[in-house]
């Protein structure tokens, strides 16, 4: 809908050139250059992602041990995974966690995008500040927060106990509720800036004329947001949700660092890591990872399709 005339024409032209008619020497030379330019990236993806992935699927159908020969076991690993209470628990916990953080990340990110999308003085400064947590990164910050959250000596307990909200010795990273709350706040802190960036880009691409027309009709701020902005940024919304949901499904660092050895707070990736690299059940761990990948692909595709269909 937003495609302007020029880019559609350009695209038609590009498509037309793709038709494999008799090619001139120049076209063949261009094709060769294109292939050379894209080859290094393709080779790396093939060697370090797709080949290991194919290998992973193969391993998941065997009883691959650390040393010695292996045997085909068909879908036994898959059948076992679904009857493994610890794995099912990890899946449910990961889904719970995703359900908890996705909404706040999106709402905060959307709010920030609204705040900084304009060109007024200071907006650029705030854009930079809001994106800083993403630059700082989740790993280092998880170590730091872990020290900050320590009972008695950490900064968080100090402030919250002065405000009378918790006792000064609240142990954040031991029990289910407080740990999940603390990690969710950290993740919202970390990830909102990226959502903001994606949504802001979409908002800035909405033509000004639409808002001017709505102003002439006396539309309220909320009407404009609901009737103009939201429908026109469905794809950035889909993209930001896919990024944050994939990120949550793959949560590892923050849990691994902040709450080790607490099986009620174990995510799928942590469980895969424990199974494959601590207990050396290589095939079984790989099976669970392949299942996780399938879930991610399906959820991403569903989000994209759902948000796309309605915009037609």
């Amino acid at each position: 809908m937003l495609r302007l005339g020029g880019s559609v024409a350009q695209e038609v032209k590009e498509r037309a050139q793709l038709v494999p008619s008799r090619r001139s020497p120049q076209q063949r030379a261009a094709a060769r250059t294109g292939a050379w330019l894209t080859a290094p990236a393709l080779v790396l993806v093939a060697t370090f992602v797709l080949f290991p992935l194919g290998f992973a699927i193969y391993i998941s159908l065997t009883d691959w041990p650390l040393v010695g020969p292996y045997h085909f076991v068909g879908f036994t690993n898959y059948a076992n995974a679904f009857h493994d209470p610890q794995f099912v628990h990890a899946i449910l916990f990961t889904l719970t966690y995703t359900g908890i953080v996705t909404g706040p990340i999106f709402v905060v990110g959307y709010g920030l995008a609204v705040l900084v999308r304009s060109n007024r003085p200071g907006a650029k400064f705030f854009r930079t500040v809001f994106f800083l947590p993403f630059v700082v990164g989740l790993t280092t910050v998880s170590y730091m927060f872990s020290l900050e959250l320590q009972p008695s000596s950490g900064g968080v307990d100090f402030v919250l106990s002065k405000l009378g909200l918790v006792s000064a010795s609240q142990a954040w990273t031991v029990n289910y509720g407080p740990a999940l709350l603390a990690i969710s706040v950290i993740v919202v802190w970390f990830a909102s800036g990226l959502t903001m960036l994606v949504l802001m880009g979409g908002m800035q691409a909405v033509p000004d004329e639409l808002y001017e027309a709505a102003d002439a009709d006396g539309a309220s701020w909320w009407d404009k947001e609901r009737l103009i902005t939201l429908p026109l940024i469905r794809r950035p919304i889909a993209l930001s949700l896919i990024i944050s949901v994939i990120g949550s499904f793959l949560a590892f660092n923050q849990f691994f660092i902040l709450v080790q050895n607490n099986s009620s707070l174990e995510t799928v990736v942590e469980w895969v890591y424990q199974t494959a690299f601590n207990q050396y059940h290589l095939a079984y761990g790989t099976t669970m990872a392949v299942l996780l990948m399938v879930v991610i692909a399906v959820v991403s595709a569903a989000q994209f399709v759902l948000l796309r269909e309605r915009s037609r």
């Binding site: 290998f55 793959l250 895969v272 290589l282 990872a289 990948m293 991610i296």
Partner: peptide, 15 residues
Amino acid sequence: SLLIPIVAFAVPLYL
């Protein structure tokens, strides 16, 4: 390959 998390091929990559 964007949709393929590293954990999915961690074991084969290691091997």
